[in-house]
Nucleic acid binder design. Structure first.
Lengths: 250, 250
DNA sequence: CATTGTTATAGTTAAATGAACTAAAAGTCT
DNA sequence: AGACTTTTAGTTCATTTAACTATAACAATG
């Protein structure tokens, strides 16, 4: 990387009026890049966020998003995958880029710009173990989130607000549920994310009329009442409906 | 900035398992950061993008987004404002952050991560002058966009797709029109962005029923037919309706 | 094994919204 | 004065939404 970098002061980026006209180009290569992962899960009563507990300064003891520096020769997306796996053990998570955060003083170590990534997963994909190196990884409730390290609260809030928008127009809610789920669970999930409540009968009708769910012939067990049918999300069907002009809406 | 940076190899970021455990921290501060501005305007038949023509390598002669490097001690948002002004003369534009782009090989000069910013403006706010330093700034039609420098096409497409989503749920279309506009213009705009067509009478009814427009008692002039009423967007009214639970939808 | 409790499921209604269309009125230009 | 184009008003029918009632299904309990 270094070898390729020219040290001339000429207009190598091609702008004619930029401010660094006479500033050595090296002076601009002083940034570090990091990634921070917002992993959201859903469990029983609400949305959960996966955080790690910091063992060192700065912000020692505080909870923080799993995140770390990116190598100068590493692509951001791969870095996000790597960091998430290293810090939490989670693998094969589909991460989506969120916003970037680059306040000059956001990190005491120097100018570190961080890129947020997020994903929605089913909690049963990840139970933090009490033992092992991942013992400092925990799910915390999104409601009443504690103060996180750095500007991580801001990052999370940004993700939550885009999530609330996306969830209304795309069937991403299903990613938060186990493969097989009841309509009741689905409704609770949507109510939790959108912070409203739906009429049960109408909700059911609406969802079913979309024809996105597959009736697994199975039922809930171990409940002290009539067990609900278990459904699964039919992604292929959604794709094909999309092409025919179908648009999901909640 | 440099003075503050520690050179120890210890775990200064607080991760326990990160890969740079024994790599000097300096090695991570090898990135440059740039900003690229996607300025969209609307004129007559369609959406327009503001681009500059590059006078130097790489990508000499190609059209490119107005963009440049960020100073190591400069906040990203301020950099975007500065760069846009330096390259195009545009000031006081409300820029919104889009995605970041950091492919390892995206820039021959070294590892340059760029952050996209975008804004919608009324074209009458900016007419590129044939003379002066801004002579290489032009509006190009978004339909059939030429090949732009670097990964700028990708950046533009990303902005366009988020624009199409946002425009349906937020009254941001008005930002693309002059302060005073006709309902016909508004309809054309929405048709251009969403690439559909609306029934004229119904469109009018829907918009007016939202009570977001203020009737300036003025009319079109110099048209060879009945002149249309000029309206303006009432932002205050929108804010107050929002609080009462109003939701804009197209 | 009947009873209890809880949830799933079906069905009904009135109101609101949306789409498609017709037609008249209002102004500018030649 | 007349032609032309666009704004504006109004109607109709189909569809969707919201709120609600009522019944059926089943597990657990004693």
């Amino acid at each position: 990387m270094n070898k390729k970098r020219s040290s001339v002061t000429e207009d190598i980026l091609g702008h004619q009026f930029g401010a660094f006209y006479k500033i050595p180009i090296e002076n601009f290569f002083q940034f570090a890049l990091s990634v921070d992962c917002v992993i959201l899960g859903y469990h029983e009563n609400g949305l959960k966020l996966l955080v790690i507990e910091r063992g060192t300064e700065p912000h020692k003891g505080k909870k923080a998003l799993p995140g770390d520096l990116v190598y100068p020769t590493e692509d951001m997306e791969l870095a996000a995958d790597r960091v998430l796996k290293d810090l939490t053990g989670l693998e094969d998570v589909y991460l989506t880029q969120s916003k970037s955060y680059g306040q000059v003083d956001r990190h005491p170590i120097g100018r570190v710009v961080t890129v947020g990534y997020y994903s929605l997963i089913s909690v049963d994909r990840y139970q933090p173990l009490a033992s092992s190196w991942a013992s400092n990884v925990v799910w915390v409730d999104v409601k009443g989130l504690p103060q996180l390290a750095f500007d991580h609260n801001e990052i999370v809030n940004q993700v939550l607000s885009t999530l609330r928008e996306r969830v209304r127009l795309q069937p991403i809610g299903f990613e938060l549920l186990p493969k097989k789920f009841t309509l009741g669970q689905l409704q609770e999930l949507y109510e939790a994310i959108l912070n409203t409540s739906f009429d049960k009968a109408n909700f059911r009708k609406k969802i079913l009329s979309m024809n996105l769910l597959q009736d697994t012939k199975e039922f809930q067990t171990k409940v002290s009442h009539r067990p609900a049918k278990l459904f699964s999300f039919d992604k292929d069907k959604y794709e094909s409906l999309l092409e025919k002009g179908f648009s999901f809406e909640m």
